[in-house]
Design a protein around this nucleic acid. Structure first.
Lengths: 138, 138
DNA sequence: TAACAACCTACCAAATTAGTAGGGAATATT
DNA sequence: AATATTCCCTACTAATTTGGTAGGTTGTTA
């Protein structure tokens, strides 16, 4: 399951997607509009910025904005930045790979099943974008 | 990601699958063969039993065995018993549904994306079985 | 130079995960 | 009937992760 933090991230990003091209949005705005604890949201937006998904500007007229079009930010990217691995096992993760104890990977049956699962999941998550979230919301 | 407990469960079940039809297997056997802490494994096998995946027998000659053929135990079932929900959001889970705060589900774009993702994932996990794990292991 | 707004470091409480300890109950063998 | 065997049950614990909060710092704009 996605952490609450990740859900907050998606809510915030949706809001920024809706305001794409309209200049920076205040953290406090997002916080009240989307009901996300302010200071927690600060952290989240900062992480998204460090992952190059957002631009920020300090001082009056400042705030956060999407760095690129909502059409170009896919869900897998967001999940990886805030939530971590998408695969169900560390030894199957593309971006967070870790060797698993007591399993010679070449002939691990579970690993093969989880690889197939990962591919099926990624096929969706890498194709769907923030823009799709907007469009799907009535 | 699957918890370590779930990985243990799969390792234990694989072992039981290999021994399907050969009578009960001792917890202590599985523990040493698959390098799973004994007392922890006890809990796991007991949970799997309560979920009707295993049979158990006490006393000499006792132990655990698969209740049904490894061909009939799919991965989604195991994950749900030991790990919990497969969906990425509670409001999208078929077996562990929970309403999510601040989202009217009908028109939540994220929810729709996560539903599609869940379906893609389940399509694999519900089709693949313990038998497939055995076959895939060299 | 004041106000504004993001940034940074550090801390904290609650929940979850990964176990451990120790005895109890059922079964089989002698 | 007694004993050994094996699963079953309750309770506890340590470490890690999650979900925040507090308070000051830095950069920007007017």
């Amino acid at each position: 399951m996605l952490s609450k933090k990740t859900q907050y991230a998606f809510r915030a990003l949706s809001y920024l997607a809706e305001n794409y091209g309209k200049g920076p949005v205040l953290i406090s705005n997002i916080s009240t509009e989307k009901r996300i604890p302010l200071k927690f949201l600060e952290n989240i937006l900062n992480e998204l910025k460090k992952a190059d998904l957002l631009d920020s500007k300090k001082g009056k007229g400042g705030g956060y904005s999407l760095r690129i079009s909502p059409k170009k930010i896919n869900l897998a990217t967001v999940i990886r930045v805030i939530n971590g691995p998408i695969a169900l096992l560390p030894c199957v993760s593309l971006n967070f790979y870790e060797k698993c104890e007591d399993c010679n990977e070449e002939n691990c049956g579970l690993r093969k099943m989880m690889t197939i699962t990962r591919d099926a999941t990624l096929k969706i998550l890498e194709k769907k974008t923030l823009n799709d979230i907007m469009l799907a919301a009535v």
